[in-house]
Computed example of a mutant assay.
Amino acid sequence: MHFKRPKIFGWLLKLYGREDTSEINRELPFAALLFTLLSASGVSIYESWKKLCSINLLPTFQKESREIVRQVEVLGYDPLTVMYRRANKTKSKNYREFLLGYVSSIRSGGNIVNYLKSKLRSIFEVQSASAIRSIEKLGTLVEAYAVMLIVTLCSYILFIVFATTSVFEPMKTSGTPGISTEVVCVLIFFVTPIISIVFMALAHTERKSNLVTVKQPYYATIVPLIAVSSFIAALYFVPQLEYFKGTEIFPLVTTICLLIISVPPAIVYMRITRVSNDAENAMPNFLRDVTEARKIGLSPEKSIIHATKRSGYGQFSGTLNLIRSQMEWG
């Protein structure tokens, strides 16, 4: 009798080793931009891959560049051969076309800079169209989330109104089962936040944030979450805290606990976004200052150093000062 082999382990290995094409497609425009700038500066493709190994803001391409450098330096393959093999192995259509086009342009003797510029333009156009579609889907998701919040709030208000009046009295006298206050509190203060988390997860899956490798808000949540969890557990095991489980005080306690968990990561995230927004707003002025310095005859390095000494860049000034210090130190 022939028995089929269990496929669960093979499926798990395949799932674990599956390539995340969404991350590659998200990082591809920025990696292509770096390749274009380095190629226009006279840097070879292999040196460009080596420089990508030290860029932590592109973790997927950092891993890819390390693999390419390993095959070149350890196994002795040619960089173009490695790129051709990686193109045939990857599941990302955009990344495959980028690698194959680069290899074909090199082997046919074409202009690499022109190819990279045209490819970069097409990649950003595709990303822009994808962003527009994602925003439309997010609009539908936000509308559904708003409807859910409105329905929940209206239900809670109706329950409070009915509970404070004599509407429930006939039901109590006739023995008709009703909704207890504890059930309503659980629905409002526990089920609703869980549904909100589900909506946020769906929104994050549909359109990921441009802030890459931002983990500080999650770290800021750990201590408040542990403290609130310990307090909630103590409510059920410490008799002296029985007062906080009362019908009148428990919703207030739950609200305070949720605020304690939410406020620290919100503050950390606001600080990060403030720096990011200042950088985006100050970048045109910074580039204008660099251009003006170039017009008076300064070298590119001197132009950048001269522009970083000016004020008015907001929180972005700290990053510019770091750039100036590293350039002055060589």
Rank of each mutant, 00 (worst) to 15 (best):
F3D: 11
K7M: 14
I8E: 12
I8T: 14
F9V: 11
G10V: 05
W11H: 10
W11D: 13
L12C: 06
L13V: 11
G17C: 06
R18D: 12
T21I: 15
S22R: 15
L28H: 00
F30P: 00
A32I: 05
L33I: 02
S39R: 10
Y46H: 06
S48G: 10
W49L: 13
K63S: 12
K63Y: 08
E64D: 08
R66Y: 06
E67L: 14
E67K: 11
Q71E: 15
V74E: 13
G76W: 02
R85C: 03
R86A: 08
T90L: 02
Y95L: 00
L99N: 01
L99S: 00
S104P: 00
S105K: 11
G109D: 05
G109A: 04
G109W: 02
V113M: 05
L120M: 10
L120V: 02
S122W: 04
I123P: 01
V126L: 11
Q127V: 02
S128M: 14
S130C: 04
R133E: 15
I135F: 14
T140R: 14
L141S: 06
A144S: 09
T152L: 10
Y156D: 02
F159L: 08
I160N: 14
I160A: 15
V161W: 07
F162N: 10
E169T: 12
P170G: 08
V186M: 12
V191Q: 09
A203L: 07
T205C: 07
K208C: 03
S209L: 02
T213E: 13
V214C: 10
Q216K: 10
Y218L: 13
I222T: 05
P224T: 01
S230M: 15
A233L: 15
A234E: 04
Y236F: 15
V238T: 14
L241E: 08
G246Q: 09
P251K: 08
T254E: 14
T254W: 14
L259Q: 03
S262H: 06
P264M: 07
A266M: 14
V268H: 03
A279S: 13
N281M: 12
M283H: 01
M283C: 03
E292V: 09
A293W: 01
K295Y: 07
S303E: 05
I305N: 04
A307Y: 03
R310I: 05
S317T: 10
L320E: 03
R324P: 02
Q326H: 07
Q326G: 02
W329E: 11
